[in-house]
């Protein structure tokens, strides 16, 4: 690489451009969230900088013509939904991937059936779920029908992540444990799980994120109680105020926090072995 400065420059420029396109919408939103209030609108120029809209989110400003965002309940619902989906998908995905470590009859068909869950157009899945629920006479709820379509959607991702992890997993480590008299259950808990933990973390991150901002499937499958993406979309139909941008910034910060937790846990689990070894080498 060092011998090809032109190529290197090009690649750097390209990456920079990519990042600009990726993040500029978010940056614009973030800037606009500091618009003055309550009279400032959702567009440039910024009349003067303030955190009015952030305070407005938490009802810390005197009442004005702009109503507070009706997002509190939706936020809690989405969080609960994403957390449950994350756990269920990861458990299912890990178990399925575990089954795929040995070839069984029909494994090819099962593979495509599972993966189909993330391939079919979301709107159709949502619609199908709504029709089915009507037909069998089940209420459409965020914790029932929506939860189901979210799991169907995220489970293939978890499965694929875990499949990749198991593909590189050395089976003889488990066999070594068995041969020492460790039961298969204990072997999974004490040997296999710690070793596949990075994959489990990634699977959890995937499932959480995908569920947290799922829109098309949720749109039809949900009943009266909305999830966060639906509720945000609902506010557009009234009138957009910078308080929505402030909310966006806060949820983005929340995502960053999640990523930070993920990265920390990952680093800990991956580096632990190396660090301990190195420390002792030095000592």
């Amino acid at each position: 690489m060092e011998r090809q400065p032109i190529l290197r420059g090009l690649l750097t420029g390209w990456t920079a451009l990519f990042l600009v396109f990726l993040y500029s919408p978010m940056v614009v939103l973030a800037i606009l969230s500091f618009q003055s209030g309550p009279e400032g609108g959702p567009q440039f120029p910024i009349e003067h900088w303030s955190i009015y809209w952030y305070r407005q989110l938490f009802n810390l400003v005197p009442a004005s013509s702009v109503a507070p965002l009706p997002l509190g309940g939706a936020l809690l619902r989405s969080l609960a939904l994403a957390l449950t989906t994350m756990v269920v998908s990861t458990v299912l995905g890990t178990m399925t991937a575990q089954a795929f470590r040995r070839h069984f009859r029909g494994s090819g068909v099962v593979f495509y059936l599972v993966v189909l869950g993330m391939m079919v157009p979301g709107v159709l899945v949502g619609l199908g779920m709504a029709l089915t629920a009507n037909y069998v006479g089940i209420d459409r709820t965020w914790w029932g029908t929506v939860f189901l379509v979210h799991v169907v959607y995220t489970y293939p991702f978890s499965f694929l992540v875990m499949l990749a992890i198991f593909n590189r997993f050395d089976r003889s480590v488990e066999e070594a444990a068995w041969s020492l008299g460790v039961s298969p259950v204990t072997t999974f808990r004490r040997i296999t799980f710690p070793l596949i933990f990075p994959g489990v973390l990634s699977s959890m991150l995937f499932a959480f994120t995908l569920s947290y901002d799922e829109f098309p499937r949720t749109l039809f499958a949900s009943g009266g109680d909305l999830t966060l993406p639906l509720a945000i979309y609902g506010t557009f139909s009234v009138e957009i105020h910078p308080n929505l941008f402030a909310f966006g910034v806060l949820t983005t910060l929340f995502s960053f926090a999640l990523l930070a937790v993920y990265a920390t846990l990952m680093t800990l689990s991956v580096r632990r072995a190396r660090r301990v070894a190195v420390q002792e080498e030095i000592a």
Partner: peptide
């Protein structure tokens, strides 16, 4: 009889040590 019940123990060609344990 499952492996963990057999009175045998195996030493593997590729060691198969538990990497997360001392």
């Amino acid at each position: 009889m499952p492996p963990e019940k057999r009175p045998t123990s195996t030493i593997f060609q590729n060691f198969a040590l538990f990497p997360h344990m001392s």
